[in-house]
């Protein structure tokens, strides 16, 4: 959870060591290899379908995500079942709101949480790691000490407190998730930067009078790109899960906004009352997203890391 899995770290580290040597032809090779991976390719296709569904799906909805169908309210188990006629393709939730619209909105939210949260982690983690690794010395030890300490703070505590202190909104949610998921990223980036900064081409640039900032942007960052992509792709599903956990604790987004985690925990609560669709539709999308993202992540890892073929 929260991007701290050592597996992702190990995988990402593995891969860069190799890519450093490979040089420019890497991206072309990697793309070829990725295209040969059928499972990953299928998952990319599926993911594109899902994103299209989120974008185009609302056009087919008869109800928006907050409208209450007053006619069926109070008798959801009988009249709120999925049906084409009523316009509730996925059925209705306990309040008579259209689950089709809500699932679309929730899928969008969850994907956004994953992507933006991962980007935040990427941004903070990379900055932190590059600064620590490149400048070294005291800066390095202070920055990494902070990471060590944050590692031992229970994540649940940090997330709860951030959401409690700052109130709920998309922004807070992203900040809360980003805040706890950049740690591993910073460690990986630091290690890679350390390895890079003493290499000949960097020395050469430095001798040629290129400024430190320029070196970082021109030479260090581009070489980190691969590891970042792989790690971020593995981080997305972890963040989606983290958000669900937050929703389960009742600290998620404010109505009418919802997320897959929130819908699933509502659906799981009412599953004994004959409204199983309230659990199954959001759960399907949740599992599908996680499934595809894991395979895409695995595919990227394999593609970028020829050693494992």
């Amino acid at each position: 959870m929260f991007g701290r899995s050592k597996k992702a770290q190990a995988i990402a580290e593995d891969f860069t060591e190799y890519s450093l040597v490979r040089g420019r032809s890497l991206s072309r090779d990697a793309l070829d290899r990725f295209l040969q991976n059928k499972a990953a390719l299928f998952c990319v296709f599926f993911m594109v379908l899902m994103i299209l569904f989120v974008l185009i799906g609302p056009a087919f909805a008869k109800w928006n995500n907050e409208e209450i169908d007053w006619n069926i309210l109070g008798d959801i188990a009988e009249q709120g079942a999925p049906s084409i006629q009523s316009g509730h393709y996925f059925g209705a939730d306990e309040l008579g709101r259209d689950l089709y619209s809500r699932t679309i909105q929730a899928t969008g939210t969850s994907l956004m949480v994953g992507l933006i949260g991962a980007s935040m982690a990427l941004l903070v983690g990379t900055t932190w790691g590059v600064i620590a690794g490149y400048f070294g010395g005291r800066i390095d030890s202070v920055l990494m000490r902070i990471v060590d300490i944050l590692y031992s703070v229970p994540i649940t505590l940090v997330v709860i407190l951030i959401l409690v202190v700052a109130g709920r909104s998309f922004t807070t949610l992203f900040i809360a998730l980003g805040a706890v998921s950049w740690l591993t990223m910073s460690r990986i980036v630091r290690a890679q930067t350390l390895a890079l900064k003493n290499r000949e081409f960097i020395e050469a640039a430095r001798a040629g009078g290129v400024s430190e900032v320029m070196i970082i942007f021109r030479h260090i960052l581009p070489n980190l790109l691969g590891v970042l992509i792989v790690y971020a792709s593995l981080l997305v599903p972890e963040l989606i899960f983290a958000e669900s956990f937050i929703s389960f604790l009742g600290l998620g987004l404010s109505e009418p906004h919802t997320s897959l985690g929130a819908l699933i925990s509502e659906g799981a609560g009412t599953m004994g009352y004959g409204t199983l669709w309230q659990l199954l539709f959001p759960l399907f999308f949740y599992v599908a997203i996680t499934f595809t993202l894991y395979f895409i992540g695995d595919g990227l890892r394999d593609a970028l890391d020829p050693k494992d073929r």
Binding site: P237, F241, S244, F245, F248, G261, I264, S265, A268, G269, M271, G272, L279, L283, Y286, V287, T290, F291, Y294, F295
Partner: peptide, 22 residues
């Protein structure tokens, strides 16, 4: 493996109780 991993573990509680207890 992937399915077990993708299933959010907090929904297991009510599901198991419904099946094994009720």
């Amino acid at each position: 493996g992937v399915f077990a991993q993708a299933l959010p573990n907090f929904i297991m509680g009510p599901i198991l109780i419904l099946i094994f207890t009720l």
